[in-house]
């Protein structure tokens, strides 16, 4: 049985929690209406003036500036990297983004373009975005992306297996990818838009963290709905419970659909009031976004000048 062979090859070097997810689910249930009410409360926070400026800059520093198109070229990736390092020529005070997120075959280009900066390169791997290929391919891809220089790996879970109840398989696969990552940080993408309920979101969050995820991430960006505030809240609460239980801080990455500064600030309010300020840094929180950076810049300029801004004045990369 291939799975068994694989496990023999990998497990000896792993330090694992011995949890058997094939037997039972042990995550708390989630009440959708309660979550929505809580989200509405976050959204009613009024973030103005200095606190808004703080949030805009913070959001910029948390961005995983992303391009994940089949038509991506070295030129496109280089431009993106330039933007990542210096989001706006006239605003030196604006921090650089946290990472650039690309397909594995663009890692080397991005790595080179970002040389000398502190910006990480994240690669989506494991048959992104569907993951519908053999585990061997997914692990090989992961190892290759890391060997190309990726600092972070964004893997996708097997949603089909998860929905079919093959939780142990999903667990084992995350364990295996984590092993394949070596020193690279592992973000586990759930594709919550395909998981049907917040109960499932909560359960996969617990499972992934127990399997060794460094970050848990909502979406690939290829499926609608992508990140939503309710889904993110449930994941933050799972992270909180993992922290209470183990003392370990796991990162969170909402991705897809976060296009405006206003929404990003709502995410940050939720972060601050759910996990607190220890999570308000790129080591523990990221936005997976492409259009967000420009809206953040536009708002920063607006806050500085008092004038509402046009996108004509912000570079599209």
């Amino acid at each position: 049985m291939p799975r068994y062979q694989f496990r023999e090859g990998v497990w000896p070097t792993m330090s694992l929690q011995k949890i058997d997810y094939s037997q039972f689910r042990r995550s708390p249930t989630i009440d959708l209406v309660g979550v929505e009410e809580r989200v509405a409360k976050f959204n009613s926070r009024s973030i103005k003036k200095e606190s808004k400026m703080f949030a805009l800059k913070l959001a910029m520093s948390l961005c995983d500036l992303t391009t994940l198109d089949a038509k991506d070229t070295p030129g496109k990736v280089k431009q993106l990297c330039a933007k990542a390092m210096r989001p706006h020529e006239d605003l030196p005070e604006v921090p650089h983004v946290a990472a650039v997120c690309v397909y594995p075959n663009m890692v080397k280009i991005a790595k080179k373009a970002l040389e000398g900066s502190k910006i990480n390169v994240a690669a989506v791997a494991t048959g992104f975005p569907s993951g519908m290929t053999s585990l061997k391919f997914r692990l090989d891809e992961t190892r290759w992306a890391v060997s190309e220089g990726a600092d972070e790996i964004d893997m996708v879970i097997s949603r089909g297996k998860f929905l079919a109840g093959e939780w142990q398989t999903v667990f084992d696969e995350i364990v295996a990818v984590k092993e394949a990552c070596g020193k690279a940080h592992l973000k586990v993408i759930f594709e919550t838009g395909e998981l049907s309920s917040l109960d499932q979101v909560r359960f996969i969050s617990d499972l992934a963290m127990d399997a060794g995820a460094d970050f848990i991430k909502t979406s690939t960006g290829k499926v609608q709905p992508a990140a939503t505030l309710p889904v993110t809240l449930v994941m933050l609460e799972a992270i909180r419970d993992f922290y209470y239980r183990t003392g370990k801080k796991i990162g969170m990455k909402p991705a897809g659909g976060i296009a405006t500064a206003k929404i990003a600030i709502q995410y940050l309010v939720m972060l601050k009031e759910t996990l607190g300020e220890d999570w308000m840094n790129p080591h523990l929180y990221r936005f997976g976004a492409s259009a967000l950076a420009n809206d953040l810049l536009r708002q920063i300029v607006k806050e500085k000048t008092g004038r509402y801004q046009s996108f004509d004045y912000f570079s599209k990369d």
Partner: peptide
């Protein structure tokens, strides 16, 4: 048991003053 357990040594969350809403 449940995943809802509290390890005694875990510090409370830090709802600090870095970002205050004006």
């Amino acid at each position: 048991g449940s995943v809802l357990k509290v390890k005694a040594s875990v510090a409370p969350l830090n709802f600090g003053t870095q970002w205050q809403y004006v």
